[in-house]
Computed example of a mutant assay.
Amino acid sequence: MNINLGEEISRRRREQKLTQEDLAELSDLSVNFISRLERTKDQNISIQKLDSIARALNTSTPDIINNAYSAKNIKPENHVNNTPIFIQKVTNELRKLPDDQAERVCKSLIVLLKEMN
């Protein structure tokens, strides 16, 4: 089942009273790219571009993705035990690393999370 990130981005942009031009400028992306993303089902977007858009909209990439799923009243296909998709993505990336690297990354994340509290 597909989601449309463009719909969620458009909704948030309009909510903040931004034009496509404003969002393009704030995210350092082209107006054509923003327009295509919002008006088509073409979801060919890199995580870096989605991050730029999320920052420009004063939100996070996981929040945009999760709200796009919620708007469609669906759960991600690989959504397990109500674990948010971004946690699953981090876990999947950790599994690709050798054990010693994954352990170092996890320890660093734990330190960072503790500092945030």
Results as ranks from 00 to 15, higher is better:
Lys114Val: 12
Asp28Leu: 05
Leu94Cys: 09
Ile110Tyr: 09
Thr83Ile: 12
Gln43Leu: 06
Thr19Val: 13
Leu50Trp: 06
Lys96Trp: 08
Gln48Pro: 00
Thr83His: 04
Ser70Pro: 04
Ser27Ala: 13
Ser10Glu: 09
Asn82Ser: 09
Lys107Trp: 12
Arg39Pro: 01
Gln16Asp: 04
Glu77Arg: 13
Thr91Ser: 15
Ile3Val: 03
Ile110Cys: 03
Arg12Val: 07
Ser35Pro: 10
Ile65Thr: 08
Phe86Trp: 10
Ile47Arg: 05
Arg39Cys: 11
Arg13Pro: 01
Ile85Gln: 08
Phe33Asp: 03
Ile110Phe: 00
Asp63His: 07
Gln16Trp: 01
Ala56Thr: 11
Pro98His: 13
Leu18Ser: 08
Arg12Ser: 07
Gly6Asp: 05
Arg14Lys: 12
Glu25His: 08
Glu93Pro: 06
Met1Ile: 02
Ser35Glu: 15
Lys72Phe: 06
Gln88Trp: 07
Lys41Gly: 00
Gly6Arg: 02
Asp51Phe: 14
Phe86Met: 02
Ile87Pro: 01
Ser108Ala: 11
Lys49Val: 06
Ile110Asp: 15
Thr83Arg: 04
Leu29Glu: 09
Ile47Pro: 04
Leu5Met: 05
Val31Pro: 09
Val80Ser: 10
Leu50Ser: 08
Gln43Asn: 10
Met1Trp: 01
Leu94Val: 15
Leu29Ser: 06
Asp22Glu: 06
Ser30Trp: 12
Ser10Val: 09
Ile85Thr: 09
Ser27His: 07
Lys114Cys: 15
